[in-house]
Structure formats: structure tokens, C-alpha cells
Computed example of a mutant assay.
Amino acid sequence: MFTAPHRRLNRLTGEWLLVSPHRATRPWQGQVEDVVDERRPEYDPSCYLCPGNDRAGGATTPEYTSTYVFDNDFPALRPETPAEQLGDDGPLVMESERGICRVLCFSPRHDLSLGEMSLDAIRRVVDTWNDQYVQLGSIDWIRYVLVFENRGAMMGASNPHPHGQIWANERLPNEVARELHQQQMYAANGQCLLCDYLAVELKHDERIVCANEHFVALVPFWATWPFETLVLPRAHQGALPDLDAGERDALADILRRVTRRYDRLFGVAFPYSTGWHQRPTDGEAHPEWHLHAHFYPPLLRSATIRKFMVGYELLAQPQRDITPENAAQLLRSLPED
């Protein structure tokens, strides 16, 4: 692999990434974060996501024993938003956007994370993701359902209780629209972009982090974040409802293994944003779409040093120093238990 500065094409978005391997050896004198002790009690009386506690919106969280889903008390999108539009060919363009925002508690226990939960408990999370995708996607005006999790204060999580979110949009979000276009362009030749990509990764085995019978976790060739990973089903599946029971078990296993490796990398509860990109729910078949999850963690060199998207990244294109190959080697070398 190249050791000199070079560009890599992100096949999923069509955008280029600058890789500068030689810069990984430079002295670091940047920002250092405080390491937060994240030891938590099993139940926190001040946590609005713990069973039996009151939420800011006035509701009470029930005494749930598994997963629990509720409509966000302070949603970014609302289903009753009236239709409005401003311009379509001038410099000022605006249109209203309806949507539904929900919160998914992974567990009633305040002290756990996804990687610390049992496989059965993670499988229940997978099943709940599936149910929410089906339920929200069946609403006639919902075009996309995004399941995601922000873990850690560094990623903007307002509460350490294990939870994620589901946002359902009236229109396709930007990242999804870009990925849809790229997959459709590739499928014009009768092939699946991510099926072909996964075959190449399995052949070379340079960026594979871990795998099982049905899923593979890898650092993508075009990764922007230092320890970014992509989780892919080996079979061509478009959304979570396409997975059978064995594949859902395998998904729970791979999620546990990936998140546990993250926590062992720098010896801290590893922050990240992760989410599932599934086929749109716009009534079209979308045979080109291949189900996948992105993990975007910000930590760069240690528990206290993170990657910033500034300067060149904001004004030109993404750039990274540590290569995806080296990142994958580090993650692969870590124990899972």
C-alpha cells in the first residue's frame, strides 16, 4: 500500500479522501481531553431513562425490563409540520420537513453499554430496530428511517444510559441520497457495489477487523475517521427485515465484538456515532441497496486525543494520517473478552 501522500475514492459517496501516512510520526501538541470516569450505578434516580423516573417532558418512564421505545420529548422533526416552500430556482430555497423522532433504551440498566450486554439482550435491540424500521417505514409519507446511536459526551450524548435514536424523514437525508446514487450507478452494470467491495476485502484481508458466518466488520479502504469501521452482511440484504433468525444472532455477535474491541483500544468507554443505512421506504424495491452500518469514533491517538475536522477538511476534503490498514491491524489485534 502507498506510503506517500495519495487520494482514495469513497465509493459510497463519490468523494475523495487525502491520506498522508508520513504525518503519523509528527509530534502531537494539540488538545488533550480529560478522561472521564464513566463508572455508573445500575440504577440512577436522576436519570430520566431509568425505569420509574420522570422525564423533562412530564411523562414517566415505565418499569421496563428489556428494550423501551418512546417518542422523543424534544424532537428535531414533527409529523404535524405544515407544508411550506420558498423558491425553487433562486438563491433562497426552503421546504418544510415532516418526521418522527423516537428514543430506544437498550436496557433498563444504567451501567451497561452495547458491548457489555449479553448476546440475547443485544439481539432484542436488533429486533427492536427491525420493528421500528417496519413500523415507521410503513407510514405513507415516510421515505427514510435512520437507526443510530451516539455514545459518550464527546459525541454529544446527553445521557450515559444505554440508548439510541430512530429518526424517520419525509425525504432522503444527504448522506443516504449520496449513497443511493452511487449504488444505483454501480448497479447499472448488473452488480452490487458493496457485494463486490466486500469480496475484494475478504480476498486481501488487510482491513478486516472481525467476522462470523454472516457478517464482516472492517475498516473501509476510504475511511475518514481514524478507527472508523463498516459492518456488512455477507449476503446481499437491503434492510434488517431481510435477515433471518441466524443472521440476526450473527449481527448481535458482531456488534458485541466490535464495540468491545473499541473499549479495549485505549482502555476507555470508546465514544462513537453509529447508524444503520437501510434501503429507503419510498415504495420502490431498491435492489441495488446493500445493508450496512457505519461506526464513526473520534479518538485519534489515545483516550485523550481526538481527530478534528477543521481547516483543510472543512474547506477542501477529508484527510487522515494513520492509514486504514494500520487502524485495522490495531483493532484486529485486540482481545474481545
Rank of each mutant, 00 (worst) to 15 (best):
A157N: 13
D111A: 12
I100W: 06
S113G: 14
R98K: 07
W129F: 06
C101E: 14
S158A: 13
N159Y: 03
R124Y: 00
W129V: 06
C101T: 05
L112T: 11
M117W: 10
P160L: 09
G137Y: 07
A121H: 00
L114A: 08
G156N: 10
M154L: 15
A153S: 06
R98G: 14
E149F: 01
R109Y: 15
R151M: 06
P108G: 07
Y133A: 12
A157G: 03
I139K: 15
R98P: 13
I139Y: 01
F106A: 02
V103R: 00
S113N: 12
A121T: 14
D127Y: 02
R123S: 09
D131S: 15
R98F: 07
L136G: 11
W141C: 12
C105G: 08
D111T: 09
S158N: 01
N150F: 04
D140R: 14
S113L: 11
D111L: 07
N130G: 04
V126P: 01
P108F: 07
F106I: 02
R124G: 05
L136W: 10
G156F: 08
D127V: 02
L119N: 07
L104N: 03
P162S: 08
Q135A: 15
A121G: 01
L119F: 06
V126T: 11
Y133W: 14
W167P: 00
V134D: 02
V134H: 02
I166W: 04
G156A: 06
R143Y: 02
D120H: 11
G164P: 03
R143T: 13
C101M: 00
D131G: 13
G152M: 09
D120L: 11
R102Y: 05
S113R: 15
V103T: 14
G115C: 05
Y133G: 10
E116R: 15
V126E: 09
P108R: 03
M154V: 13
M155Y: 01
I166G: 06
V125I: 15
S118R: 10
D111R: 09
A153G: 04
R109M: 09
R102M: 11
H163S: 10
M155F: 09
Y133F: 15
N130F: 03
S118K: 09
L146D: 00
Q132H: 05
E116C: 04
S118D: 12
L114M: 13
V103C: 12
R124K: 14
